[in-house]
Write a protein that binds this DNA or RNA. Structure first.
Lengths: 130, 130
DNA sequence: GCTTGACCCTCCAGTTGCGGGAAGCCCCAT
DNA sequence: ATGGGGCTTCCCGCAACTGGAGGGTCAAGC
């Protein structure tokens, strides 16, 4: 399989796939013409990566998960730990965003949004958030 | 005021303040010794920026907001539009994160997390998300 | 046999919003 | 005069790619 094939099959752009090879996440073979030659194994890894990335795992998390994925002697506890840590980061991010949303929404609600220059949003940004 | 002073007063690191000057968000004067000389006006802007950034506005949004802040002929509708657009981006981000959280949480819950290698999390990542 | 177009390759630069660190002034206190 | 801050500029690096330049390869059609 060429890069275009695995790109279509995994949904990852060719650029991303080359990047994943650069940083050592996958190691496709090479054809005599210099083209990358992907095996099923490589495609499986790319699918794995695509799904892990879509769940928000960092590249380094993905590297760890891929290693665990390939290690027959892993323990599920190790995997769960990585996932739980990531879950907490997500929760933290959601909390942050909700706090932003809260404050921002108050400002937006207070703003009449007409042709006049008077604006509670700018006022809110220019004076301390109590 | 030197950069250290406005840094303490605004809570922004000196590096950030220099960066904001680099990209033209603030234009402090210069003392004869080459030090940046911040006026009250500059400090106000930095405080404004610190608050806008803490609400998640991008630098370009901040640039727009600062321009509106300084424009006596602005309309509050213009400001509100920027804020509402940002609010939608935040909501979108929250939705994405919640979806991730959902899926990830199911996987974590399904994983017993013991010494055995069998792991629903890895299984979930290696087979299509239905 | 030649051209065309779709692939593929590498390498370099840019993105966002800074942070780290080097190398070198400046200023004040001892 | 010497030490310790503080200030300056400059350049590199981060994450995770994306875009583009410049060039080789392959298969089909004429």
């Amino acid at each position: 399989m060429n890069i275009g094939d695995v790109s279509r099959l995994s949904g990852l752009p060719p650029k991303t796939i080359r990047y994943y090879e650069d940083i050592g996440l996958i190691k496709p073979l090479r054809s005599s013409n210099g083209y990358r030659a992907f095996r099923d194994k490589d495609l499986h890894k790319l699918n794995f990566l695509a799904r892990a990335r879509s769940l928000g795992f960092s590249i380094e998390d993905c590297r760890t998960l891929l290693e665990l994925y390939e290690d027959q002697d892993r323990t599920s506890a190790d995997v769960k730990k990585v996932a739980e840590t990531h879950l907490e980061r997500i929760d933290e991010k959601i909390r942050e965003l909700k706090a932003m949303r809260e404050t921002l929404n108050e400002l937006v609600d207070a703003c009449h949004g007409d042709h006049r220059p008077d604006c509670p949003i700018l006022k809110g940004l220019s004076s301390p958030t109590q």
